[in-house]
Amino acid sequence: MIKTIIFDLGAVLIDWNPHYLYKTIFADEAERNAFLNTVCTPDWNEEQDGGRSLQEATDLLLTQFPEHETAIRAYYGRWTEMLGGPIQGTVDIFSALKATGQYKFYALTNWSAETFPIALAQFDFLSWFDGILVSGAEKDRKPFASFYNTLLDRFDIDRSTALFIDDNYRNILAAEAIGIQSIHFISPDDLRSRLADFGVMLEKRL
């Protein structure tokens, strides 16, 4: 029986996408994609998730790509414009699960320690968690097993009765490799169906 549910945040509960910002900087889609694939790349961003400071990250790119100074500085200078709001369907599921009183809830997120306080202030549902582990604060991140194990150890979670939800299949495989049952998040409707497969009910059991 599942007793603990572990959520990823970005693209599961929170709609975050750099394109929301960079559509206002690069009108041409090809130019925008080229910038995000070669300058402010996902791999570069993950280093901030792993604990690198925003200043160090920005300075690194300014040295490598001085011609893109304005766009590079916008990544963190206008970071809030990448937040699209809550993914309401998933928030509704979370709310229903919380109301049953039958589960513990934790968040395991790859997120910069410097930008996470912005999300905390903006999204009330983050206060529903029994604990949150932020990669940037821990200087560790998914998909490394050590990050998952830190969550399990810190909050005394039994991996055999835990369920992990993440949109990144790489992170799902990593969780399953250390014995945590997992759901690859695709959409709120799919999640609702998959939860039922694991015996997780959105209404309190009688």
Results as ranks from 00 to 15, higher is better:
R141K: 05
D92P: 01
L54C: 15
V12T: 04
F65H: 15
Q55D: 14
A11H: 11
V200R: 03
F123R: 02
S182F: 07
A27C: 07
G10A: 12
L54P: 11
N45S: 15
V12E: 04
Y148R: 08
Y75V: 10
A57S: 13
H19D: 10
D49T: 10
G50S: 10
W79F: 13
K139A: 02
H68V: 12
F198N: 09
N17I: 10
L151G: 03
G77P: 14
D59F: 11
S127E: 13
Q88L: 14
Y76C: 11
I186W: 15
T4E: 05
D167T: 01
L61S: 14
G136S: 02
I180T: 02
G131Y: 00
I157G: 02
S53E: 00
L120K: 10
Y103F: 06
G89N: 00
Q181D: 11
T100A: 06
Y148N: 07
A71W: 03
W16L: 14
L191Q: 10
K23A: 05
M82T: 07
S193K: 08
S182I: 06
M201P: 14
I183G: 02
G85P: 04
K139E: 05
A113P: 01
Y76A: 08
I186Y: 14
D140M: 14
R170I: 11
W111T: 09
I178D: 11
L36H: 02
I157A: 04
Q55R: 09
R52M: 10
E56V: 12
I157V: 06
A119V: 06
F94C: 00
D124V: 14
E46P: 00
D124E: 14
D166A: 09
D156S: 13
E67C: 12
D197R: 07
I165E: 01
L173W: 07
L13K: 00
P188T: 09
V91Q: 03
Y76M: 13
A107R: 01
N37I: 13
K142W: 00
Q48L: 13
R170D: 11
